[in-house]
Design a protein around this nucleic acid. Structure first.
Length: 558
DNA sequence: ATAGGGTTAG
């Protein structure tokens, strides 16, 4: 396939807009058409021997015996295809609908069962899956390969891999689709070895199989292995690129995600909304505001439909980059606001310390828009309150997470034994469209010595202002001097030092840290903002700190 | 057609 063709394909995907939703809009063809496959595998089928009646009896018996509480099927137009109903409904509704629709001698065909199974896998209902499995066996549809695959999927999404494997091994015709279902199933359970094994014996792995490997490894935290498969993949398409990009985002490697996004376009693939949402997440978690703005322009230029998905991603990006007003602009311009959109806005405001505004939006959500808040909304509201300093008692209680060295030591040992390393502190700063990342204690930045000299200079000035390193926070029982050294090289200090020496006086510094800012860095940054007459904005894992003239916007609540 | 990619928090 040549690149220009791929380009067009990608464009069409975007321009048509709704194409990615087509999975829920089933084709109307099918249900009433008799399928050869199904007909040939049904046992009997002769009126004279009473098979049809018997089938109907077993169906109704099963309905009663399965103790399913039927809900009233409400469908617009009784002639709506059963598939459409099944794919957009719960299995209970689908069964009820099937029952109300089915009169002897019409017991449905293989399509009917495929759709019912689809609704089972959608709701991950093992009970309904097994019941349907029984019925399908009774009626003889189990020999139909498409029904088998649908059943396979049910067991896979319900986590019953051993059952799925049994069915898989029993299948007479195993096509690439069944292999792919099994591969993702193994990854879902974290059984990467079995997934690899299946992939390697897969007759002819296609793009879906390769992408399943990429996604599978990413979901299991192994982006390195995912990248290896991605690089080896012979014929990548947009979905495979998106899988790798979003995989990097999920594994907290936003810079790699951004890099791959650029690479993707160099390979003449045109980003669609999925790529855009993923890369916005990368911008949000690395604080790449300029990159994020560029994406927003791209979205407008290419007339991407601004739906709740894209809208929340944009609001999330802006607020996590400290640009609250831009986030609010997107929020107000959004026509369809679902719970997620409201939550994103509330959390974004809370994150930036705008407690009052977050609570206002919360009121608006319930009173003005009548959207029901969920648990995520409440987490956001709590966050807003705590950052607003409304929970002082909580804070006092908290100060009682602080000198238990022995406990800390124990936890560290357990973590090490489990193979979990402490997450290294990492801070990034965007300068001239370049993102510089600093890891605490890492000396690899080309200007490392200059940065240290600058920090040393600052320390002297800070000491005259009465600053002494607050060492209690290092939470490790090393001697005082070592503690002070470790503090001096916290990643945010390195980023600030670099920002100071590489930007014009007075320029605002925007730092992004993956962990929380420690007390020492907090008071040091306050002083630095005063000494250097700079505004310094630090976003840590939990919230924003706007430092100016020796004061922080969080009023020391965090 | 069935299989692979995307939103909010802790």
């Amino acid at each position: 396939m040549d690149s220009s063709h791929r380009y067009n394909e990608a464009t069409n995907l975007e321009v048509s807009g709704d194409s990615e939703d087509s999975a829920t809009t089933m084709s109307s063809a099918g249900p009433e058409e008799e399928e050869d496959d199904a007909e040939s595998c049904v046992n009997g089928g002769d009126d004279d021997c009473g098979c049809r009646d018997e089938r109907w009896i077993s169906w109704s018996t099963w309905c009663e015996e399965s103790a399913i509480e039927y809900e009233t099927a409400e469908v617009d137009g009784r002639d709506a295809p059963r598939e459409a109903y099944a794919s957009s409904s719960t299995p209970i509704n689908s069964f009820a609908f099937f029952k109300s629709y089915t009169h002897p001698p019409n017991n449905g065909n293989s399509f009917t069962f495929q759709s019912l199974l689809k609704s089972c896998s959608k709701s991950r209902s093992i009970a309904h899956s097994t019941q349907l499995h029984c019925l399908i066996s009774k009626l003889g549809f189990i020999c139909c390969t498409s029904v088998q695959k649908a059943l396979l999927k049910c067991y896979v999404v319900c986590g019953r891999l051993h059952v799925a494997r049994f069915l898989f091994d029993e299948m007479l015709e195993r096509d690439i689709v069944s292999y792919n279902i099994m591969i993702s199933g193994y990854f879902e359970l974290g059984d990467t070895l079995s997934a690899i094994e299946l992939f390697e014996c897969a007759p002819n792995p296609n793009r879906v199989s390769w992408t399943a490997m990429v996604t599978g490894f990413c979901n299991n935290g192994d982006s390195l292995m995912a990248r290896r498969y991605f690089d080896e993949m012979p014929d990548k398409d947009l979905v495979s690129w998106n899988a790798m990009i979003s995989g990097y985002v999920r594994n907290q490697q936003p810079l790699q995600a951004l890099h791959l996004f650029v690479l993707m376009q160099m390979e003449r693939f045109r980003p669609n909304r999925v790529s855009i949402v993923s890369v916005l997440l990368a911008c949000a978690s690395s604080g790449a505001l300029d990159a994020g703005k560029w994406i927003h322009v791209y979205v407008n230029k290419n007339k991407f439909r601004l739906d709740a998905f894209l809208g929340s991603a944009l609001i999330d990006m802006y607020t996590k980059c400290g640009a609250v007003e831009f986030g609010l602009d997107v929020f107000t311009s959004l026509k369809a606001k679902n719970t997620c959109v409201w939550n994103t806005m509330i959390n974004g405001l809370a994150l930036n310390g705008h407690a009052r505004r977050a609570l206002d939006v919360f009121d608006q959500m319930q009173l003005g828009a009548s959207i029901r808040p969920d648990e995520i909304t409440f987490v956001g509201i709590l966050m807003a309150c705590s950052h607003g300093g409304f929970l002082e008692e909580g804070r006092r209680h908290f100060y009682c997470t602080s000198k238990k060295w022995k406990e800390v030591e124990k936890i560290r040992k357990i973590m090490k034994n489990m193979g979990i390393e402490k997450i290294p502190g990492s801070s990034s700063i965007e300068i001239n469209n370049m993102i510089h990342e600093f890891i605490s204690g890492n000396k690899s930045h080309p200007r490392y010595t200059d940065i240290c000299a600058e920090l040393e200079e600052l320390r002297k000035k800070m000491n005259t202002e009465g600053y002494h390193a607050e060492i209690t926070e290092v939470l490790y029982d090393i001697d005082e001097e070592e503690k002070e050294h470790a503090l001096g090289h916290h990643s945010e200090k390195l980023a600030i030092g670099f920002g100071l020496i590489s930007t014009a006086p007075g320029t605002t510094l925007r730092i992004f840290k993956n962990l929380r800012v420690c007390t020492d860095c907090h008071s040091a940054t306050k002083l630095i903002s005063k000494i250097c007459k700079r505004e310094i904005i630090v976003r840590d894992r939990v919230r924003f700190h706007h430092f100016k003239d020796g004061v922080c916007s969080c009023n020391d609540f965090w």
